[in-house]
Simulated scan of single mutants.
Amino acid sequence: MKHDMPSPAGAKMSTHSVFGAPCWVSLTSRDLKATEEFYGAVLGWQWRPARLGDRFRIALADGAPVAGIAGVATMWQMAVAWTPYFAVRSADEAVARVQERMGTAAVGPISLPPGRAALLADRDGATFGIWEGELFTDWETWRHAQPAFITLHTRDAFDAAIFYGEVLDWASDTPGCCEVQYEGGEVVLRSRGDVVARIESGALEAAPDPTIRPHWQVHFTVTDVSACTRAAELHGGSVLSKGSDEAVLRDPDGAQFTVTSRRGR
């Protein structure tokens, strides 16, 4: 498939500074206007055009870029979903490692100056992206603007950690790589001391319900979880689960994400 993707391009910090860590999130949608209205109401996002064309937008939280939105799901026959992107030193090398380990390369690597991207799936079917090049915004700013962290719900957390560790150079001898620890039955990924991802066991690969198949879940920090759930329902979304500090929501297109209270971080 030959096309641009919502990409983390345009800033001075490069993936060599934060390699192996999540560096961006993007959403494919069917209706760009409806997506803007929904996430504007639920998360308070503002919008600006993206360099990739009329079907793309950059979401801003308090003026800081936090996500890319691409209204191309129907045109490109892609699933409606949130996708995390990981910083890599070499997109070609990362894609080769994925394929060598029985993963799948769906798109790319493709050139999106000033970098290169690919859309991939691990061997259990969870979709993720990689990005090589300059980051969209300063990584520390992005990390603390709104995305809290990402969670992989997968068949076997230990097996998945080995796969991603070999693809993304986690816990390697290279300075600056991500640290991996096994804590309380889950794998925890840290970059520069921050928890940036978790991997949990228990997903069912062949489950008819996509919410319990292996997938990456994106968490966004908010000040009021209850207000977000009310706004989601008022604007055509749904609430899949809700606790005091966290709720799992689905947008009108079907993309699933989590809102997490700033108090609960």
Rank of each mutant, 00 (worst) to 15 (best):
L152I: 00
T211N: 10
S172A: 10
R190E: 04
A207M: 12
V188K: 13
W142R: 09
T211D: 09
T137H: 01
D209V: 00
E179Q: 01
A145K: 05
T151P: 11
V195H: 08
T137P: 07
P214A: 15
R155P: 00
R213S: 12
P147D: 14
D209P: 04
V187T: 13
A145M: 03
F149E: 08
A161C: 10
E132F: 03
G193E: 14
P175S: 02
L204D: 15
E132S: 05
E186V: 08
G184M: 07
D209M: 01
Q181Y: 04
W142A: 11
T141F: 00
A161N: 02
E186Q: 03
A203Q: 11
A171T: 02
A160D: 11
G176D: 13
V180G: 07
D194V: 00
V188A: 11
T174L: 04
D159Y: 12
I212V: 09
F163V: 10
H215A: 08
A160K: 09
R198L: 11
E183V: 03
W170I: 14
G133S: 06
I130K: 05
A145V: 08
F163D: 07
Y164Q: 05
I212G: 03
W216R: 06
A157F: 06
E166M: 09
E179L: 10
P208T: 14
S191R: 08
R190V: 07
I150C: 15
A171G: 08
E132K: 04
H153W: 00
G184F: 04
S172C: 07
R155H: 11
P210H: 12
A148W: 01
V195N: 02
G193P: 01
W216F: 10
T211S: 14
F163T: 10
V187Q: 02
I199Q: 11
L189Q: 04
E200I: 02
I130N: 06
D156E: 13
V188N: 14
T137V: 11
A207R: 09
F158K: 09
W216G: 00
E200S: 02
A145H: 04
S172P: 07
R155L: 13
R192S: 00
S201A: 05
V196F: 02
A203I: 14
